[in-house]
Amino acid sequence: MLMNTIIDLLNWLNDSQLAVLISENDYLFPWIESIHVLAITIFFGSLALVDLRLIGLAFLEKTIYRVSEAILPLTWIAFGIALITGSLLFISKAITYSHNTFFLAKMCLLICAGINMMIFQKITGRDMADWGVGNHIPLSARLAGLISLLLWISIIICGRWIGFTLTPTMGS
């Protein structure tokens, strides 16, 4: 039942006007992809600065609160752009992507990264504003930073592998 709904949705996306527009135009896909890559590099780079501060490898003279406050707005903007452009790329070949192992792995890892961040926001990092400078940060929070870095690197790895493992699949 659910599976049928998903297949219907993928077929509908795959045949939508937007999908046809992106996949049939010679320049739209590379342009959207370029913006996607730019957004990913800025997203990952800025998030890595915050994660490195959490782990205790950089910016120890600043509190984690100040580093997050200064950097995370940029991280979220970049994430939003990556999400929009990523969705457009997906729509253009929805069925092909949904059959790709690395695409599916990337989506699972994205969910894991989201859960990791939510646990940090709600539990581990609740009293973040009280953490001072230096390395006096709970081990669980430092671990959250490390897990975040590793997850996002894995997401980038899967993302790059999608481009090398795509095999066109006919809609069913």
């Binding site: 590099t41 800025s46 890595a48 600065l49 690197i153 481009g163 090398f164």
Partner: peptide, 24 residues
């Protein structure tokens, strides 16, 4: 098949580092 994407991942991560560093 595996060498090129692996090299490209390192390339993208490095771009990310240099992009954010120069941006700062």
């Amino acid at each position: 098949e595996s060498f090129v994407p692996a090299v490209q991942v390192i390339h993208i991560l490095s771009i990310s580092a240099i992009l954010i560093s120069t941006l700062m």
